[in-house]
Nucleic acid binder design. Sequence first.
DNA 1: ATTTCTGCAAATAATTTGCAGCGTT
DNA 2: AACGCTGCAAATTATTTGCAGAAAT
Lengths: 126, 126
Amino acid sequence: MAVRRYSRQRELIYQTVRASSAHPTAEMVYAALKPDHPNLSLGTVYRNLHLLAREGKLRQLPFPVERFDGMVAPHSHFCCRVCGQVSDVAGAYDPELDRAARALGHQVDRHEVVYYGLCARCRAGG
Amino acid sequence: MAVRRYSRQRELIYQTVRASSAHPTAEMVYAALKPDHPNLSLGTVYRNLHLLAREGKLRQLPFPVERFDGMVAPHSHFCCRVCGQVSDVAGAYDPELDRAARALGHQVDRHEVVYYGLCARCRAGG
DNA sequence: ATTTCTGCAAATAATTTGCAGCGTT
DNA sequence: AACGCTGCAAATTATTTGCAGAAAT
């Protein structure tokens, strides 16, 4: 696991996440690719999503079923309690937020902000 | 499922989470209670944790393995990438944070802030 | 040639659920 | 008596892993 080699599958997985605005799960990425790439395997999707996240090319989001985001620039996420969809919320990274954690002696690599509630669409529709 | 009735198990589960500072998982709560309550079942622990969270008596935290917090008052959490422990970070609920999500038409019930990094103890020890 | 990466399938981990009987009201 | 809650165990879902062969360098 020292040198990274090119792989078609990894490239496809990466592009799929980047092209999606759904903050897809591993299953969603798999389902999107499977039709055109019938021998892609789910294990490969998991392995590459985690690898890409470790490398900082994708961002892994804190949900009970893991989700990934191709937009690495700082922003937060909203999760609707009705439809379950995850959507972006603009917002610069606020280093001020980290102050309280640093004050406790922790080294903060990053933080995640997640909003929960009823999304605009479900509000209108229901 | 209309009327709520008292149950010894629920009470024990609730008190266990409240008394803990570990932000315990279902397994942790189960392990803590099992010795003194040998016929407690894990399913009951899961059911009651979720029920208590729905009622607002506990707070469910956004980690891949679900964790619960008996301290309902606003504060955030730090998760150490080495030891995996979750600890409290003081901090009032900042309604300003919700502004961006509201601007998109979402109804925000609450938000969670989670810090990731190296905790004070692991910094010292490693 | 070497070593990473893949597909497959089985293993593991986490959570949920059906059901018969117990406990609370 | 009515019905919510429990224990048990099986089912489901999510994720990880071992391995033999294919692909990249």
